[in-house]
Amino acid sequence: MLDITAAEIDGKLADAKSSLLPLRVDDLVYELNGVRIIDGVTLRVEPTGCTAIMGYNGAGKSVLVRLLHGLLTPSAGSCRWAGNLSASEISRRQSMVFQVPVLLRRSVEANIDYALSKRGFKAPERARKLEAILHETDLLKLRKRPASVLSSGERQRVALCRALAVEPELVFLDEPTASLDPAATAAIEQILLRAISAGRKLIMVSQSVGQVQRLARDVIFVHRGRIAEHTPIEEFLTTPRSAAARAFIAGELFEE
């Protein structure tokens, strides 16, 4: 028990404290059936705030976030996380919200509790975290409801609650409000703003310029599997550098 070396203790401490971010993506390629869906993406994601990923349908946004989150394996290139963490520790510190939420056929709180237990939180701590996150995402009234009877807005709120419950350093979101009405969208954005101010990093695919303006600090514009530009939000909204992004903001059809 006692013969742990100082280096090991240092390593454990570093493990607990060091951040995943910044993320450096180097010449990332993803091919499916001979088609390059992601075609040489190089970028750097900073540790704080919300980074938005925008682009036309089929540009490769969803595939890009899945590659970063580790749900897909790149054909070439790499994602390098800071902090020298093990692969399991890297994935433990992330979570994801999908465009169509996938909930288990059980109650709202059982869904959240499932995620907490799978991430290794133990009983007394789990109950505490469950209460806190249900409160934070305004789901206390719905906690006993079966997930199957919820509206789409409520389902997405539960999915977001589940993603935040595991206390991730980084949350991926793939068009989380794409099929929601304005009120449900506002509710999700409120929660996201609180998550950002609590220090969580968000990487969010969005088609809504307004939403990106409200939430993001920088925008990665993906066009045909490549990064057309990666610029701070003010610059992106006023003077986008790429022709594709200019056309996107102006709401025009873009043909290359």
């Binding site: 749900l71 399991s88 992330q94 999908f98 996938v102 799978k118 991430r119």
Partner: peptide, 16 residues
């Protein structure tokens, strides 16, 4: 087909 990505994202593999 429906659950795969969500479960893998939560770190649920194999037996579990």
């Amino acid at each position: 087909a429906d659950y795969d990505e969500a479960l893998r994202s939560l770190g649920v593999h194999g037996w579990a």
